[in-house]
């Protein structure tokens, strides 16, 4: 029995809520219990934004997370806010092309991913979130890789359907750029 608690945080427009939904859908397709809780407020592009995702083998109590197992920090304020809250032994993903400091914690695993840079190299600098997503999939068992395309099809809006392939491509770039990635593509 396991439960994975994830917080994804950054600026509005970085695909924070999308990535959260995608993970949630993947959990659902895996037959797990899932919840997705967004921050909400005045909808301003560039404002701060986060969401909490829980994927579990058991019914989910609180959708509100005190100590996440995984944090994806897509900007500096998010790193400052959530680094202290990562559960001991948890994983912290830092958007290193946008964040100018290193993590301070030593009791967690930290991954520095120049997500926006990698996305840019692969054709769309808006899709740093997909790089991160790929990276997360490469280092955790909480979410399977196999259903990610199916999940993207569920989450992506009709008018962005043409972006499905580029999303998959950039996700794969994030995945293969991760540690111990290659074998899982097989």
């Amino acid at each position: 029995m396991s439960t994975t608690k994830i917080i994804i945080a950054g600026f509005g427009g970085q695909g924070i809520l999308f990535t959260g939904k995608l993970m949630t859908y993947q959990g659902l397709l895996d037959g797990k219990y899932v919840s997705w809780l967004p921050s909400y407020g005045p909808e301003v592009r560039g404002g701060t934004c986060n969401c909490s995702v829980i994927i579990s083998d058991e019914p989910i109590g609180s959708p509100i997370i005190d100590n996440p197992d995984i944090v994806i920090a897509m900007n500096r304020p998010s790193l400052d806010k959530y680094e202290p809250r990562v559960a001991k032994g948890g994983k912290l993903f830092v958007e290193s092309s946008l964040i100018d400091r290193k993590a301070e914690r030593t009791d967690i695993t930290v991954y520095y991913v120049p997500a926006t840079e990698i996305a840019n190299e692969n054709g769309d600098n808006r899709l740093g979130n997909m790089v991160m997503h790929g990276k997360v999939l490469s280092v955790t068992d909480a979410i399977s890789f196999d259903n990610v395309r199916q999940a993207i099809e569920k989450v992506i809006s009709a008018r962005h359907r043409d972006l499905l392939d580029i999303n998959m491509k950039i996700l794969a770039a994030g995945y293969s750029g991760g540690q111990a990635a290659a074998s899982r593509f097989a």
């Binding site: 659902l28 219990y33 899932v34 919840s35 997705w36 809780l37 909400y40 989910i60 509100i64």
Partner: peptide
Amino acid sequence: DGTIGQMMEP
């Protein structure tokens, strides 16, 4: 409440 209203679940 706002939480249950905004959150997504299956």
